[in-house]
Simulated assay, not measured.
Amino acid sequence: MSNSSGYQMRHGRLRWPLIFAIVLLHLAALYGLARALAPDFTASIERDVVSAFTVPPVAQPEPPPPENRSEPDEGAQGEPGRKAVAQPVTSPPPRVPIRKDAPLPQAASTGTASESGAAIAGDGTGAAGTGLGTGSGNRGSGSGGVAISKPVHISGRIDNARDYPVPSGGREARRGTQVIVRVTVGTDGRARDCTIYRPSPDPEADRITCQLVESRLGFRPATDGSGNPVPAPFYWRQQWF
């Protein structure tokens, strides 16, 4: 019997996977030695092997060219329309005819002056504007200024029944009546120039009321726009209870 037969009998059958692994190890060792000693040679072999298994890319078909489409003809401009003309409208005649005034006659003049009548300011007593005499109004320097505040009663009372005589028929005849008198309060605050504005049934009592207002009552006089005291009217009402 040969040596190989004796080896198989001692160790049994050889295992093919082990043999394949041993072969691969030898090839790898040879490949590593070749890359170390001849790198250019091994690189060219690798390129040839890779190119043998490389699948070239498939060329994509080119898309068909777009179709040439002609744009539709828009056509020519139409004829212009006719211009609208408004129908004339007239208002009906008025039912009542309008009366026309007769023209005024033109004034004739033979003078040469450019103004007529009173001017704004003059030298006579009838001139308008502001003057310097008494009673010249708000802007005058005299004592005739216009009052802007009323006189105010500040002192004195008329409340004593013994100031009036007993009328005929007794005091009951005068009870519930009244009299209103008008006086002028001067710049000194005293009343004067009393008159009966609204009388009572007793004329004697009205006269006595005027005397008492002038002699017994005191007032704060009215003032003008500059604060100066000016004379002004005052109305006093006297009632009997």
Rank of each mutant, 00 (worst) to 15 (best):
S2P: 09
N3L: 13
S5I: 07
Q8V: 15
W16H: 09
I19C: 06
I19Q: 13
I22G: 12
I22D: 15
L25Q: 07
H26M: 09
A28N: 08
A28Y: 08
A29G: 15
L33Y: 04
A34S: 11
A36E: 11
T42A: 15
A43S: 11
S44Y: 01
I45L: 14
E46I: 02
V49Q: 05
A52L: 13
T54S: 15
P56C: 05
V58H: 04
A59N: 07
Q60R: 07
P61W: 00
P63A: 14
P63L: 14
E67Q: 12
R69V: 07
E74T: 05
A76I: 05
P80K: 00
P80L: 10
G81S: 09
G81N: 10
A84P: 13
V85C: 04
V85E: 14
Q87T: 13
P88Y: 04
P93R: 06
R95F: 03
V96M: 05
K100I: 14
Q106I: 09
Q106G: 10
A107Y: 00
S109L: 01
G111M: 00
S114M: 03
A118S: 08
A119H: 10
G122H: 01
D123I: 08
D123R: 04
A127G: 15
A127P: 02
T130K: 01
T130Y: 08
L132N: 13
T134F: 09
T134C: 05
G137K: 00
S141Y: 03
G145S: 13
V146W: 02
P151M: 05
P151G: 10
G156A: 09
D159K: 00
R162P: 00
V166S: 15
P167K: 01
P167C: 11
G170H: 03
R174N: 09
T177A: 09
V181K: 01
V181R: 01
R182H: 10
V183P: 02
V183R: 00
G186S: 10
G186T: 04
R190K: 14
A191T: 06
T195I: 09
R198M: 13
R198A: 15
P199F: 04
P201R: 07
E204R: 12
A205W: 08
D206I: 01
T209S: 15
Q211W: 02
L212S: 07
V213P: 02
S215N: 13
R216K: 14
L217Y: 08
L217F: 11
G218Y: 02
G218V: 08
G218M: 01
A222T: 06
T223L: 05
T223C: 03
T223R: 08
G225K: 01
G227S: 05
F234D: 09
Y235N: 12
Y235H: 14
Q238W: 01
W240F: 15
F241K: 04
